[in-house]
């Protein structure tokens, strides 16, 4: 001990140095605490505001309280009160008290759509009375992302259904497009036919001209015959009178018959439409049934082959033997004739 004490100069004033170090450390800690206190508004004068929310989800103790985007305080207490509602107490810095007047409202919002939640205080009427310590302010629920998502959900479902409907190869839209395609192809063909017909019509008209000339020369004698025919027709018209009367009766009943046929046709249309809609499903059902039967057969086959079931299933005898067949053709000769 003596050797060290005598020779090592670093140990001179050791107690003083230790005391200084300790003081520095204590001062550092105090400064740190002070800084944290300032940061956390521990040393600012505060007054409290209260509001009552229907639901406490998303409201926590320590949550920031902001006014126009500036942090003015923190939530100091969240408590359940009568009616299963939630009373929130916020401690707000006194220096912002001049902005907190009657008419301000609180709501819970987020920084951006996915940021941290905070209590937002809406700016009130600057001419209104200042709020006192412990006053209550109204709370309103602002629709956030979740509400938007909830609202969007049915819309998305509907959009999905519409896309399905449009994409369905058996659906009206696809079928209609297909039909339009066919119709347009048909129109092309029709146009080509019309062009061809018009071209042919030119030649036909020329032939008609020459024919008309020939007809004119032959028509005169025919006209004479026609006159005679008309005379006969007159006589027949008289005889046709009763027949026409009957036709009148028939035509009177025709509209009701047509109406009946119309309704039957409507039924047929409805039926065929229903069948048309149901046909793919029916085919699916048949397909599924066949598959199920096939699988069932395989399962039964497997069960039958497994022990001990195979011991219980009677063995199927193969037709090893030619049938004995007790048939004697002489019976056909007849008995005692």
């Amino acid at each position: 001990m003596a050797i060290i004490h005598d020779k090592d100069s670093r140990f001179k004033n050791l107690e003083f140095k230790a005391g200084v170090m300790l003081m520095v450390a204590i001062v550092g800690i105090v400064v740190l605490v002070l800084l944290l206190g300032i940061e956390r508004d521990l040393f600012t004068k505060k007054f409290s505001l209260k509001f009552v929310a229907e639901n406490g989800a998303g409201i926590n103790k320590g949550m920031p309280v902001k006014l126009s985007g500036f942090k003015i305080g923190r939530v100091s207490k969240v408590e359940l009160i009568e009616g299963a509602r939630v009373r929130v107490t916020a401690e707000v810095s006194q220096k912002y008290a001049e902005y907190l007047r009657k008419g301000i409202k609180a709501n819970i919002t987020k920084e951006g759509y996915i940021g941290d939640p905070y209590v937002d205080i809406t700016v009130g009427d600057f001419g209104a009375t200042l709020l006192a310590d412990g006053d209550s302010i109204p709370y309103f629920k602002k629709e956030g992302m979740e509400e938007l998502i909830n609202e969007a959900k049915p819309v998305m479902t509907e959009i999905k259904e519409i896309i399905h409907y449009i994409n369905d190869p058996e659906g009206d839209i696809k079928v209609t497009f297909g039909n339009l395609k066919e119709v347009s192809a048909g129109l092309e063909e029709t146009r080509a036919v019309i062009t061809e017909t018009t071209r042919n019509a030119g030649g036909v008209l020329k032939r008609v001209d020459s024919l008309v000339e020939k007809v004119e020369t032959r028509v005169d004698p025919i006209l004479g015959s026609v006159e005679r025919v008309f005379l006969r027709v007159d006589g027949m018209t008289v005889k046709l009178g009763p027949v026409i009367d009957r036709l009148d009766t028939v035509s009177a009943t025709l509209p009701s018959t047509v109406l009946k046929i119309d309704s039957i046709l409507d039924d047929v249309k409805l039926l065929s439409a229903a069948l048309g809609t149901g046909a793919p499903q029916i085919m699916d059902v048949i397909g599924n049934t066949q598959e199920t039967v096939k699988e069932g057969k395989e399962i039964i086959k497997g069960v039958k082959a497994s022990w001990p079931v195979r011991l219980m299933v009677p063995k199927v005898e193969k037709p090893h033997l030619v049938p004995l067949d007790i048939f004697f053709p002489q019976y056909g000769a007849g008995v005692g004739e």
């Binding site: 048939f327 019976y331 004739e337």
Partner: peptide, 17 residues
Amino acid sequence: SEKIAVDLSSMAAIHRK
């Protein structure tokens, strides 16, 4: 075929009787 013919001729024999 053979049995069918026998059946037919047997029935014919009864009708004849």
